[in-house]
Computed example of a mutant assay.
Amino acid sequence: MVLLNGTIKVKISADSPDNTMIELYTFPTPNGRKVSIMLEELGIPYNVHKINIRNGEQRTPEFLAINPNGKVPAITDSETGISVFESGAILIYLAEKFGQFIPTDTKGRYQVIEWVMFHMANQGPIQSQLFYFQRYAQEKVPLAIERYEKESLRIYGVLDKQLGDKEFICGEYSIVDMAVYPWVALHDFQGLSLDEFANLKRWLDTMGQRPGVQKGMKVPE
């Protein structure tokens, strides 16, 4: 357990904490929810440390020792002694450690990885910027809002096309779907319509029915 500002911030997600290996440091953000969805889908016990980014807890020396970039999420693995930050890297680490949600064949594995990288380089940053200019910028900048809305919808179009003949983004359910879902789930909040993206809307509905996704989206409470 890690002490943050003198307080142990832990929630046990399983009846027996003795087998817990993964410590999750997170906050209710789309990036944080990617990892909690993954952990819930794996069905493994894990501890949740709520890092309140509104209070600056991500900048404490204790957390910076885990993630020098001072962002959530991050994990530590007591079994291996490894800590991992950046949500995409965490998903790949957990998929490889537990042998789930990533193909074992080279072609399939790299298809999943490339779509994870697509998400990390495009969707996450673009929708994050849209969120900032919509909600937090001290001054409204219509040109910036328009630019990020259009780019978000372009990315939705790429995903919609990819889903044209697939149930999930890479065919089989994988870490790509877990990465993309929390951001697409924000579409209403960000004023983005899925009316022109029937495949993406169908996928969103399918994802939202998964118990692991439902539980992961509520972590931390």
Rank of each mutant, 00 (worst) to 15 (best):
R135N: 08
E196F: 02
M207H: 00
G191N: 05
L42M: 09
P68S: 14
D105T: 07
N55Q: 15
P103N: 12
F197S: 00
I102W: 08
L39N: 01
L204C: 03
A185Q: 13
I75D: 07
I145E: 04
F98C: 07
T26Y: 02
H119D: 15
Y136V: 15
I82L: 13
Y110C: 07
K97C: 09
Y136S: 06
I169P: 11
K161Y: 04
A198G: 01
S152Y: 10
G43H: 09
W203L: 06
N199L: 08
Q214P: 07
A14T: 03
I12D: 15
E79M: 08
M21N: 14
Q134H: 02
I51R: 03
Y173N: 05
L186M: 15
G216C: 06
Y148N: 00
K166Y: 07
G212Y: 11
F85I: 03
K71D: 03
Q58P: 03
V116G: 03
M207K: 01
D165S: 14
I53L: 06
G32N: 11
A179P: 08
I90A: 10
Q127V: 13
S13C: 10
F189G: 04
V176C: 14
I169A: 06
H187F: 04
A198R: 00
K201G: 07
E57S: 12
Y110R: 07
K201D: 15
S174D: 10
L204R: 09
I175D: 10
F85H: 13
G32M: 11
V141N: 14
K50C: 06
Y25K: 08
W183P: 00
